[in-house]
């Protein structure tokens, strides 16, 4: 039972503080699921989930909640609890915003908060990249070659799904 409660709290936190969506949520997710005290996943596992999220529909926060919930408990219900927990804060907050939408639109305090949060979101994405640059994800010089190739291709706006499939096939060929 404790594991379900831990899952709920961890993913509720991710939903509550996940400003900026997408990659900006990665350090938050990583902090909860890879970091102490839970250590539910290894860094390599976590990177694999990011890759799977890129290839499957849906937001990464939800994908990782479903994946972690299932693998940690080995049960369908673990996936349900974690996914529900990550959706709950955005659901409640966005409901309130929708209700008071006109007032919110002209709220200068929100603008003030976002002047600071925007750079922080960029910082969080940078942190996601930095923490994943380690020996789990970069095993040899070939990893660096793939990194540089995909980095350039991303700047050239190549479709991310194609890039992941290409990188995976390269992995099968070279390893």
């Amino acid at each position: 039972m404790q594991i379900y409660l831990d899952l709920f709290i961890a993913f509720f936190k991710i939903g509550l503080f996940g400003f900026g969506g997408g990659y900006a949520m990665l350090p938050l997710i990583q902090h909860e699921v890879v970091g102490a005290p839970h250590k539910w996943l290894s860094v390599a596992d976590f990177t694999d989930i990011v890759a799977i999220s890129q290839m499957t529909p849906g937001p990464i926060a939800i994908n990782s909640a479903t994946y972690v919930g299932y693998t940690v408990t080995g049960s369908f219900w673990g996936a349900v609890v974690a996914t529900f927990a990550v959706c709950l804060p955005p659901l409640v907050i966005m409901l309130l915003i929708s209700k008071f939408y006109l007032k919110f639109r002209e709220n200068h305090y929100m603008d003030m908060i976002f002047a600071g949060l925007k750079p922080a979101i960029v910082g969080l994405i940078a942190a996601a990249a930095l923490t994943l640059m380690n020996s789990h994800n970069f095993v040899d010089y070939k990893s660096i070659v793939i990194f540089v190739a995909v980095f350039i291709a991303t700047l050239l706006k190549v479709d991310p799904i194609k890039l992941i499939i290409f990188a995976g096939i390269s992995g099968i060929v070279i390893y």
Binding site: Y23, T47, L132, I164
Partner: peptide, 27 residues
């Protein structure tokens, strides 16, 4: 082996848009 090839690619895909993103946000 498939995932070994993918992992550095994922890191690149997170890092690459950082510059254009900070420019778009007017930071």
């Amino acid at each position: 082996a498939f995932f070994r090839g993918i992992r550095p690619a994922v890191v690149a895909m997170i890092a690459a848009p950082l510059f254009s993103l900070s420019r778009a946000m007017g930071i």
